[in-house]
Design a protein around this nucleic acid. Sequence first.
DNA 1: GTCTATACCTTGGACCGCGAGGTATGTCGC
DNA 2: GCGACATACCTCGCGGTCCAAGGTATAGAC
Lengths: 116, 116
Amino acid sequence: MPLPGNPNFMAGVPELVVLRLLRDREMYGYEIVQAIREQSGEVLSVGEGVIYPVLHALEKDGALKSRRKTVGGRSRVYYTVTPKGLKRFEVLAGDWSTLAAAIRAVLNGGQHVPAV
Amino acid sequence: MPLPGNPNFMAGVPELVVLRLLRDREMYGYEIVQAIREQSGEVLSVGEGVIYPVLHALEKDGALKSRRKTVGGRSRVYYTVTPKGLKRFEVLAGDWSTLAAAIRAVLNGGQHVPAV
DNA sequence: GTCTATACCTTGGACCGCGAGGTATGTCGC
DNA sequence: GCGACATACCTCGCGGTCCAAGGTATAGAC
């Protein structure tokens, strides 16, 4: 949360990314890990040790719902975004946008960049 | 360091910002804290508890040089960027750029954004 | 003489990310 | 049938960053 007294202003990106991916379609953890790697052009490598805890926390908070599904003999846990999760995504996305703009502003020498 | 095996990929923003400000002109710690707040449009609030340790670490690494100066009866520690520090800034700035682009790519649905 | 602003600094803990490790099952080659 | 590899889930504990809180000291205002 960048705006008012921001504790740990850089955190929460994994969460944001997870919510973004699940907004499009139902996915399972292992798949998410690879999707992040792919879609970021191999730049972001957010491992399973990050993703699974994030998924559990989001579900506990009611931002995600899960259901087991067996595909080709493999048991998977698929996640979907709840309305609460969608709202959370929008907040986080806005925060990120604000933050990135602020950093860019400083890098550009203090000229206020009018949002992207 | 976003690219190869990235430990703590989101970190280092305070350092990056400090180097950016000092690249323009000599500044002292207290001044830097306020400059960040201002230039970021009050979004970034990186307190003294962050800045001073960063300045000390950068100086210890030879990225900055300091000199005491008394202005109007007030003793200040002014910092300037060394060539090593400049190089470090360029690396960090590039890393940040890459990272921000990667996150934006994911937020945009996996279409590779051709750098900004 | 007290209060506010300036200016420096350190410490403790909180939090997050992450590697490393652990379990289990399916598939492919030999 | 057996080993190696990919899939798929999970947790623990370390480590690094950030940050609030607190501490010192001087200058200027009222």
